[in-house]
Simulated assay, not measured.
Amino acid sequence: MITTDKTLSREKLEKAAFILKTVAHPTRLAIIDLLGSQEKMSVNELCRALDCEQSLLSHHLINMKLKGLLNCEQDGQNRFYSLKERDVLKLIDCIENCDCRM
């Protein structure tokens, strides 16, 4: 086993794996990207911006909310989502700057 001074703790690795599993879908990453530039967005606004069916988008939003990445507030019949964990935007930056040749 290789060890370095920068070895991550088991707890940090498990947290990272949980977050990565939660966002490991193009639609979920797109939701994070959009909500990173907006304070909050309604489901309808997200549907239009992502050109995605409401039922599929709602599935992703609910999953991300249940796992603690998003906040949701209801105003009448509209639900508005926002990022609860803004640090997840660092993943978007990392993806944007990644030059992996896979």
Results as ranks from 00 to 15, higher is better:
Ala17Leu: 11
Thr27Arg: 10
Ile2Gly: 09
His59Arg: 13
Ser37Val: 06
Gln74Cys: 04
Ile92Ser: 09
Lys6Pro: 05
Gly68Thr: 01
Cys72Arg: 06
Ile32Val: 12
Cys94Asp: 08
Arg79Val: 00
Cys100Val: 14
Leu8Val: 13
Lys84Thr: 07
Leu61Pro: 01
Ser42Gln: 02
Ser55Ile: 08
Leu34Asn: 03
Glu53Ser: 04
Lys15Arg: 10
His59Met: 08
Lys21His: 07
Glu73Arg: 08
Met1Arg: 10
Lys84Arg: 15
Lys84Tyr: 09
Leu20Glu: 08
Glu45Asp: 15
Leu8Ala: 14
Lys40Trp: 02
Asp93Ser: 12
Leu35Phe: 10
Arg86Met: 08
Met41Gly: 03
Ile62Lys: 07
Ile31His: 01
Gln74Arg: 11
Cys52Phe: 04
Leu70Trp: 06
His60Trp: 01
Arg101Glu: 13
Ser58Trp: 00
Leu61Cys: 02
Asp87Met: 06
Tyr81Lys: 00
Ser9Asp: 12
Lys21Asp: 15
Leu13Val: 14
Asp5Glu: 14
Asn71Phe: 00
Ser58Ala: 05
Leu8Ser: 14
Gln38Ala: 12
Val88Leu: 05
Thr22Met: 08
Arg101Asn: 13
Asn97Val: 08
Leu91Ile: 15
Phe80Cys: 05
Gln38Tyr: 13
Ser9Gln: 14
Met64Thr: 05
Val23Asp: 03
Leu50Val: 03
Lys15Asn: 05
Lys21Pro: 03
Ala30His: 02
Asp93Leu: 10
Arg48Lys: 13
Glu11Lys: 12
Met41Phe: 01
Asn97Gly: 13
Asn71Tyr: 00
Met102Cys: 12
Gly76Ile: 09
Leu56Ala: 05
Asp99Gly: 02
Ser82Cys: 10
Gln38Glu: 09
Leu89Asn: 04
Leu69Ala: 09
Lys65Val: 06
Gln54Val: 00
Arg10Ala: 11
Lys90Trp: 04
Ile95Glu: 08
